[in-house]
Computed example of a mutant assay.
Amino acid sequence: MGSERRNTLPLKFKLPRVDTLITLRSKITPCKKNNFICRYRRMLDLLTTPIDVSALAPTIEEYEKLLDWYVKDHPPFAKLGEPLMPESVAEALHLPIEEVSLGLRPRGFAIKFLEDKAWALEKEGKCFLLMSF
């Protein structure tokens, strides 16, 4: 008789810390927030959406419906397997190439680098320059 024991794969989920993003979001002027919503739809709502880690991850189609944003109309910045080029990242983020070169790693930017840059822009009164391009 076969064993009743099932082979299951344990999954571990790391919940991202978004407190800094929520704080920065509260500093967006209404005009910038409207511009962001026009461009990226309901993406900011993801910051305050409760997450049940025991549930399965939504499909791409479910994310599209949640965000009212269609993936096929918004291709990713870089193709899989292609390295990020500092020149194209600098152009997209309106940052000096030297600054991008210092912060860009093979898998992207460290969250600390992005948070520090966001706070620096906020101090300059350009809180969401990165969100408005």
Rank of each mutant, 00 (worst) to 15 (best):
N35M: 13
F13H: 15
K14S: 09
Y70H: 15
S26G: 05
K126R: 13
E98Y: 11
T8I: 15
F113G: 01
V71W: 06
L11V: 15
E82P: 09
D116M: 03
K117C: 06
A110P: 10
I28L: 12
K117N: 06
L9Q: 12
P30Y: 04
D19V: 14
S3C: 02
P50H: 09
F36P: 00
T20W: 01
L129C: 06
A118I: 02
S132R: 10
R25E: 08
M131A: 13
S26R: 05
T8C: 14
P75L: 05
K27V: 02
L80Y: 08
A110I: 06
A90E: 01
T20M: 14
P86L: 03
L66C: 08
I37D: 06
G103Q: 06
P75I: 07
P96F: 06
L104I: 04
I60R: 12
P96R: 05
D73P: 05
K123E: 11
G103E: 02
A92Q: 12
E4L: 13
E64H: 05
K32S: 05
E115C: 03
I51S: 00
E124T: 09
A57W: 03
S26Q: 04
A92S: 13
I60W: 05
E82C: 14
V89I: 13
C31A: 10
G125M: 06
V53Y: 06
L67N: 10
A118G: 06
K33H: 12
D68W: 01
P83H: 11
L47M: 04
K33N: 14
M131G: 15
Y40L: 00
G125C: 04
S88W: 08
T29Y: 03
E99Q: 10
R5K: 11
C38Y: 11
G103N: 04
L80E: 07
K27R: 08
L102G: 13
M131N: 10
V89K: 07
L104N: 00
E4R: 15
L84S: 02
T49R: 10
P96Q: 05
R25Q: 04
L44A: 06
F128D: 09
M43V: 10
M1C: 10
S132H: 02
P86Y: 03
E61I: 03
P30V: 03
P76L: 00
K27G: 09
G108C: 02
A120M: 09
F113T: 00
T59C: 00
K33E: 13
E87S: 13
V89S: 03
T20A: 11
V89G: 08
D45N: 14
E98R: 13
K123C: 10
P10A: 03
E115Y: 08
G81C: 01
L21E: 06
A92V: 15
F77S: 01
T20Y: 04
L66T: 05
G103V: 05
C31R: 14
L9N: 14
L129E: 11
F77P: 02
I51Q: 03
T8N: 10
P10R: 11
V100E: 02
A110F: 11
L24F: 03
K112F: 00
